[in-house]
Design a protein around this nucleic acid. Sequence first.
DNA 1: GCAGCCACAGTAGCATGTTACGTGCAATTG
DNA 2: CAATTGCACGTAACATGCTACTGTGGCTGC
Lengths: 242, 242
Amino acid sequence: MTSPHSRTLPQRGQSLTDQVMNHVRHSVVTGEMEVGRLYSVYQLAEQLGISRSPVRDGLLRLEEAGLIEFSRNRGFRVIPTSPHDVAEIFSLRLALEVPAALRAAHASTPALAATFNDLEAHMRSAAERGSLDEFFDLDQQVHDTILSAAGSNRVRGIVNRLRDSTRLLGVSTAGKERSLTEILGEHAPVIEAINAGKGQEAAAAMREHLTRTGQLLVSQAITAQHLDLDPDELWRDYTTGY
Amino acid sequence: MTSPHSRTLPQRGQSLTDQVMNHVRHSVVTGEMEVGRLYSVYQLAEQLGISRSPVRDGLLRLEEAGLIEFSRNRGFRVIPTSPHDVAEIFSLRLALEVPAALRAAHASTPALAATFNDLEAHMRSAAERGSLDEFFDLDQQVHDTILSAAGSNRVRGIVNRLRDSTRLLGVSTAGKERSLTEILGEHAPVIEAINAGKGQEAAAAMREHLTRTGQLLVSQAITAQHLDLDPDELWRDYTTGY
DNA sequence: GCAGCCACAGTAGCATGTTACGTGCAATTG
DNA sequence: CAATTGCACGTAACATGCTACTGTGGCTGC
């Protein structure tokens, strides 16, 4: 059971700890692991055919990131992402990524523009094919590239961590292909403004994009969890000031 | 040495892992551990008289927080905090804490005001006694309380993690007692505005406070590391847009 | 029927053995 | 003398044994 059989494809550089983290993240978005249900380190280690150490290490890091929660002597569970959480996360992204777009515009280069155009083309392709996984992956890359161009390396890490918490909602409920081309359409002005070096416009476009996406996800979270909340009011509560 | 003797006092809540994290943090600010030098898990475990597991766990979490860095099969080292890092960190805090001050003002209550006044009194006392440790501890509590009142729980975690990275600079170089009363004087308007429910004023005062502190720390970092940089220019580079 | 007690199962946390790998050094060779 | 290769050492990463603790369900007594 714990022997190193076929599954042990080490996949260069990728430590078992990282693999565990990816496995859990992936299992959550695919629904393989239920939110709220208790799991144990023992169980997961056996399932993956590895020992408890890397499993424990990975889970500890996921706990640090706020994705899971340990219940003392009972196991761990995936923390449900409430509409409040979604609103808070997007208020954060507004605070961080809107200024980053402005800064990225000021640091615009031809090489950067080429990267953006490339990413945009791929996104269009993914959207037409309706490939959700790929689309969201590219979406993240666009945002990451912007943050990188803005020289905000710490923000990159923070935003990437926040993304984990929202993705399970995003992928599971955003089944509308219409949303994909819509989101794509929101990216264009951001990229265009950055490439043109127009900071204020880039910031405004980014704000628009994040606001739309955030409001959409908040609404989806509310309906998915059968809650009786006013999405607009909730959104306003959390984004006031940002 | 490694046998389960008297040291096995269960000690509520405080796990060995946490103790390790605190030890490393403390050792860094006191200069007991040199920035950039290689240390090993083995070494540290023996020094603390515990096994490698909790040491490793704690260091892994510190790595996640960005305080240390593992070099595969070589050991770990404390990551140096460059003036650029300081500037980036404060640009982040500006983006997060200024809106939080505004939100806190909107959520002001008498109980909150009492907490603030209490903290302020303690800070004054600490400043007069020149107790740096205590002062910075209280400073952090003030900021934490503001974030808490603003309902930004994720921001609390993020800011607290950022603080670790700047503290080693702050404590080791900010030896001037003048700075303490100065910082204290900057807190007053923030607290006052929050208690009065005046959001805009609270935000402006927080911006002022963070700007001053950040610029001071950037300058200190530059001189401490004997670099030839213009603090104002560096500061402007990182805080544009925030 | 209810409350308190107790025994049980499962878990987190810690200790320690094991393995494979990166690094620097020294010996060897062209 | 310089470059290359082989080797020894120290380390991270992983595996696994162990123990104390805690929440849970069944049992007993009232």
